[in-house]
């Protein structure tokens, strides 16, 4: 009994370790390639760690490429999208959670429907719409498109947080003398901070790694975000893997930081509607 339990726990741990190893291996490879000198990249064969490491790729990417511009653009686009979407989703999520109105069912159905289209289908019509408005090749255009695509899911996420907050609380506040909006702002919103953090993080990372629309709507380096920028390391005749990986490692940093800050809340948010607290 005891021995079999230990065995079972061991096997369980081992399985988790194997999973983590598989999941993290590409990231490890990214790091490994980014510090491998160009000369050794092809000459050493497949090795877990190069015989000599270098930071020359990082130096080049930061000092001599357009990467800082891409990075800045990505920060602006992802940050603005995250803020815009979270504000809209907080308001609409609250409405879906608390109000009963006639078209509620249809609005929810419509929002679900928007999530069902393959994005590729929408690229051409969106380009056609944004182009006369002067919103192609602009960060504003990207923020608008990303917001439009993220609001529905973020709304459902926020709704599940609001559903987890007892209605009694705002009724108590309303009896205490608050309007519904004041109750929302002073009582409900502070309690939803974890949900807001989760939504911010989710939308930020989604926008941070988006490639398709960035590629189609942006031409030229001035307004390119970093996923598009990464492609600039691919030239007609060769791919500069070292620099590309170095850029990739740098681009991972903000996303990782963001997720580290909010991952606890994110897990909480995804289960908020499932278990009655």
């Amino acid at each position: 009994m005891r021995a079999s339990k230990i065995l079972l726990t061991g096997a369980h741990r081992l399985a988790i370790l194997a999973y983590i190893a598989v999941a993290l291996f590409p990231l490890y490879w990214l790091l490994k390639v980014s510090v491998t000198p160009n000369r050794l990249l092809y000459s050493e064969g497949v090795r877990m760690w190069p015989s000599r490491t270098t930071f020359e790729h990082f130096e080049f990417v930061v000092a001599h490429s357009a990467f800082p511009t891409f990075f800045k653009n990505s920060l602006i686009v992802s940050g603005s999208t995250a803020v815009v979407v979270t504000i809209l989703a907080a308001l609409s999520g609250y409405a879906l959670s608390r109000f009963s109105f006639r078209a509620k069912y249809w609005i929810v159905a419509l929002m679900l429907l928007t999530q069902m289209f393959p994005l590729v289908m929408l690229v051409a019509p969106i380009f056609k719409m944004l182009s006369p408005l002067g919103l192609t090749n602009s960060l504003t255009g990207l923020v608008i498109v990303y917001s439009a695509f993220n609001v529905p899911f973020a709304t459902f996420l926020m709704q599940s947080f609001f559903d987890g907050i007892p209605k009694d609380l705002e009724e108590a506040a309303m009896i205490d003398g608050a309007t519904q909006f004041v109750a929302f702002r002073q009582i409900i919103l502070p309690l939803t901070l974890p949900g807001i953090a989760a939504t911010l993080g989710f939308v930020f990372t989604a926008a941070w790694s988006e490639l398709l629309f960035a590629l189609m709507l942006i031409s030229g380096n001035d307004a390119a975000t970093f996923p598009v920028g990464l492609l600039s390391f691919v030239s007609k005749f060769s791919v500069d893997f070292g620099q590309m990986m170095a850029a990739g490692v740098l681009a991972l940093i903000p996303a990782c930081l963001f997720f580290l800050m909010i991952q606890r809340y994110l897990v909480q948010g995804l289960t908020a509607g499932a278990v009655k607290g």
Binding site: P166, D168, E171, A172, M174, D176, A178, T179
Partner: peptide, 17 residues
């Protein structure tokens, strides 16, 4: 509106903030 009725209520769940 509830806020203008000048009444107080004690909830079953207490509904403390």
């Amino acid at each position: 509106a509830p806020k203008d009725r000048d009444i107080a209520m004690v909830f079953q769940s207490y509904a403390l903030y």
